[in-house]
Nucleic acid binder design. Structure first.
Ligand code: MN
Ligand code: MN
Ligand code: ZN
Ligand code: ZN
Lengths: 142, 142
DNA sequence: CAATAGTTTAGAATGATTATAATATAAATT
DNA sequence: AATTTATATTATAATCATTCTAAACTATTG
């Protein structure tokens, strides 16, 4: 539950001007109790529903990518045609419900620490992500 | 190192007619000692280089998707704009080298078993995949 | 209040993937 | 082995999410 002036600082601190559009997008994304997952399309619909002045799709793309670059969003790719953004930027894993197409955060009492015994020589690990796909029992599994 | 007649059976057994094009693609993908990762683009280039008669891009897409549906290939999605296919269809995890854009298979002495303590109620796990992104030590990490 | 740098926008361009529908091939049937 | 039927391939067009362009707009600075 951040307020407008906090978004202004947040944007200024990252070298982004606090424009009307960016503040509106901040409000939609970050002015909540819980983090959530969304697609660009979800966000565009959400904004057009809850904002009288329209924000162009190019700006929505630009802003989401800027926020991702600044580390305010993470991108989670499920398949070649499904990409989600996540307002939860802490390290965490996901369940993906193939029936509902919903991403669900895992916490530590759901997936234990991944044990990486050997890394590639000369490389540093930049992220470790687990994706657990789930579906109804009686549905076709692949 | 399978031979042509084995590919013919394999295709027939899955209800796919053993056409010239599909057999050529089988040869390129499965007539090897080691499994590997490829993009559609890689495969198309490979075929045009090693085959005198061209296979249309539509057929390459169709065949790769048919093979994936039949379980002869797995798809590994790295980001919204990078999708790989894998001829290793066993359960395994991956390192992704952000410097070289190369996918590398993990074996059990690199990543231990993922401990899933609680699953979503009423759902069955259809896959568990770990992706470890790595990059050079001195490179920008995100 | 300029001047400047950064931002938004509508619309065009891109490019990977998929659809179309005519032609070709494989399999099944006579 | 000729005919019929089902399936596959192909060139090409269509789709559509994303990115690009460049003109208009806005926030910031002096
Ligand atoms: Mn695909
Ligand atoms: Mn993107
Ligand atoms: Zn999440
Ligand atoms: Zn692999």
């Amino acid at each position: 539950m951040l307020k407008n002036s906090e978004f202004v600082s947040k944007l200024r601190n990252s070298g982004l001007r606090p424009t009307k559009q960016r503040l509106k997008i901040c409000e939609v994304l970050f002015n909540r109790d819980k983090t959530f997952h969304f697609t660009i399309n979800d966000l565009a619909k959400n904004i057009s529903k809850n904002f009288n002045k329209k924000i162009s799709l190019a700006t929505i793309y630009n802003t989401v990518h800027a926020f991702k670059d600044k580390g305010y969003l993470k991108e989670i790719t499920i398949s070649s045609d499904k990409s989600y953004f996540d307002t939860n930027i802490t390290k965490h894993h996901h369940f993906y419900d193939e029936d509902t197409n919903l991403l669900i955060d895992c916490n530590d009492n759901e997936i234990g620490k991944v044990n990486i015994k050997n890394n590639i020589t000369g490389k540093k690990i930049s992220s470790v992500e687990v994706l657990v796909r789930v579906a109804s029992d009686y549905q076709n599994q692949n």
